[in-house]
């Protein structure tokens, strides 16, 4: 079961996802305790394993810190669904084996608290609460391959 946590905000930046005052570590479990702290101090408490974040435009803008993805992974966030993503964050997600789902009307078709299921390869979000299927454009094959391998470095190693 995956619950959607909806933030109707554009430009949620990596400083909000993991503030720089915590960048003196690269330990995912430690970073996870501060995940989304400057946006929502309750997030870590209410996020259950597999839950999703839903947001507006330009999610993950700002600093290139991959710590933002590690914090989300450490907090057991299943995926981020956003209208669109900032470039470096998007790349970092794929490189870490974490799904960025681009959906043009994300914050309109998914309500806070909705129960959803995502089929990443087919590009379908099943909104169980609203009993609706929502289509999105799946990632290109090479990116899905990287995610399936558990990230870019495993992918490079597997290809050798």
């Amino acid at each position: 079961m995956s619950i959607a946590h909806v933030y109707k905000r554009d430009h949620i930046n990596t400083d909000e996802i993991i503030p720089a005052r915590y960048l003196n570590t690269d330990n995912a479990a430690e970073l996870a305790t501060h995940c989304m702290e400057d946006l929502d101090t309750e997030f870590v408490k209410k996020c259950k394993p597999g839950d999703c974040i839903v947001a507006g435009d330009d999610f993950g803008c700002g600093s290139s810190r991959e710590h933002a993805v590690w914090a989300l992974q450490g907090a057991k966030v299943g995926a981020v669904i956003a209208k669109n993503f900032a470039r470096i964050f998007y790349r970092n997600c794929i490189n870490c084996g974490f799904y960025p789902v681009e959906l043009a009307n994300a914050t309109e078709v998914i309500k806070d608290g909705d129960e959803i299921e995502i089929d990443y390869k087919k590009g379908i979000i099943n909104n169980k609460t609203q009993k609706k299927e929502i289509a999105f454009k799946p990632l290109p094959d090479f990116a899905i391959e990287i995610i399936d391998d558990g990230g870019l470095l495993n992918n490079i190693k597997n290809k050798k």
């Binding site: 690269d26 700002g62 600093s63 290139s64 810190r65 991959e66 993805v69 470096i88 790349r91 970092n92 490189n95 870490c96 990230g151 870019l152 470095l153 490079i156």
Partner: peptide, 23 residues
């Protein structure tokens, strides 16, 4: 992310995360 600074020197320059850096 501010690696784009070096573009002032007619170079292509861009910021990346740790995994890309490792690769």
């Amino acid at each position: 992310s501010h690696t784009c600074t070096y573009g002032a020197f007619a170079a292509f320059s861009t910021g990346i995360g740790s995994t890309d850096l490792a690769a």
